[in-house]
Design a protein around this nucleic acid. Structure first.
Lengths: 223, 223
DNA sequence: CGGGCAACCTAACGACCGTATGGTGGTCGG
DNA sequence: CCGACCACCATACGGTCGTTAGGTTGCCCG
């Protein structure tokens, strides 16, 4: 069996698509794996697919990894680390809770749009990881959700958000609308990431804010 | 090989877990398939898994189906038909666009909460279907999104929604927040489907409505 | 009481999966 | 110029996958 697939024109040692140093290949491997997981899903993707695109044999991948699962873990881990850092930074910035909420949503959406493929893999294939490794990435709590929930709760405490909204549900609503963008955003579409981010942020802020707070915000913009 | 798995205590013709008439078994098959796809994903699930839970052998499934893909198609097709009908009915009901938007969101969320598993399979595994069969289900347009987008646009035309919101993005935002519930709703959680639906609907309405329209709505409730 | 059909079973097919093991060519420091 | 080592190749294993073809049972109808 000529390594499962590939014509394998007898033993002329294969076309040998350039040898590369380890670090460079590793980065390339992660990129290719991300793309393949995006296109076929984790279970649907095979190491063969990935190796093919790298111009090597699937067995050779084990020079870089211990198992297929390692690849998914690495891909997801990387994008989550980045995204979570971006969101936390925005949430901890200056200003009143509504301002920070708006900035956080925008940062989150813009990051998702600009890292569409890894984000999609993260959101779609996270549950393909065994529980232990999943929690190694997420931490034990619901990190993302918590950021939005806390910002809404804070706004509520300062009288900027309507008292009848449940911060928990509000946080999940925001998370849903922002995490949905990977399903419809297209770089060649009619809207830029910034425009979309601004729209989603504005809707969310209007969704939770009191009428008074909204009036105050418009006045501040006008000033 | 004793049909791949199962101890198979020699040939005593297997425990024979009750024979059932076709229609009943077919319903049971769909239910089991839905559950298994939910737990393992379409690619991760095997016909063996499904057959095991039905107490039959995987080959016997082909008495009911032509291929594994048929199962996914049937499952997704059913839940989509139901859900879309519910949403369209609510969108076509009486009242001004904001009222109808609110009712539509509530109907959508309540339906999703009460059909959590099929909904999850629909949203998660839809893209596992080949394009042709996917469009057979969805129709060629973006049906769900269109309903929400049109309601927002209608509200805008009547001066009930803020002119600076993009109905397209607003529709997708609403779709995102409502389609996200399958990821966090638990029947044994602190909130009922109705409460969650009401919260999400209220946030969405506040997210797009003008200040005047909101005042008018509160007055109407008070009356 | 016998024939037929519905609802399965039995058994196997070829393909492909992730993974292990040992080899092998080129490159580079000494 | 030589040996070591890096980045792969070659090959194969055991297993599982979806799918097929033909058999077997029990119930129903006449």
């Amino acid at each position: 069996m000529a390594q499962d697939r590939r014509p394998a024109g007898r033993s002329e040692r294969r076309a040998a698509g350039e040898r590369k140093p380890r670090e460079e290949r590793w980065a390339q491997l992660l990129e290719v794996a991300t793309q393949v997981f995006y296109e076929k899903g984790y279970d649907g993707a095979s190491l063969q697919d990935i190796a093919d695109r790298l111009g090597m044999l699937k067995g050779s991948l084990y020079y870089y990894i211990q198992s297929k699962e390692d690849l998914l873990f690495e891909v997801i881990s990387e994008v989550h680390r980045e995204g979570y850092a971006v969101v936390r930074a925005a949430a901890a910035s200056e200003g009143d809770p509504l301002d920070r909420l708006e900035r956080t949503i925008r940062a989150h959406v813009e990051h998702a749009c600009r890292n569409l493929v890894p984000t999609a893999v993260f959101l779609h294939e996270l549950e393909a990881l065994p529980t232990a490794r999943r929690e190694e990435i997420l931490g034990s709590g619901h990190a993302y959700q918590g950021v939005f929930r806390d910002l809404v709760a804070e706004a509520q405490n300062e009288g900027l958000a309507r008292p009848d909204v449940d911060p928990r549900v509000a946080g999940l609503s925001i998370l849903g609308s922002t995490n949905w963008v990977y399903r419809w955003f297209r770089a060649d579409g009619p809207s830029t990431p910034e425009e979309i981010a601004a729209q989603l942020a504005a809707m969310a802020v209007h969704g939770v804010a009191t009428a008074d707070a909204l009036v105050a915000r418009e006045a501040a913009v006008g000033a």
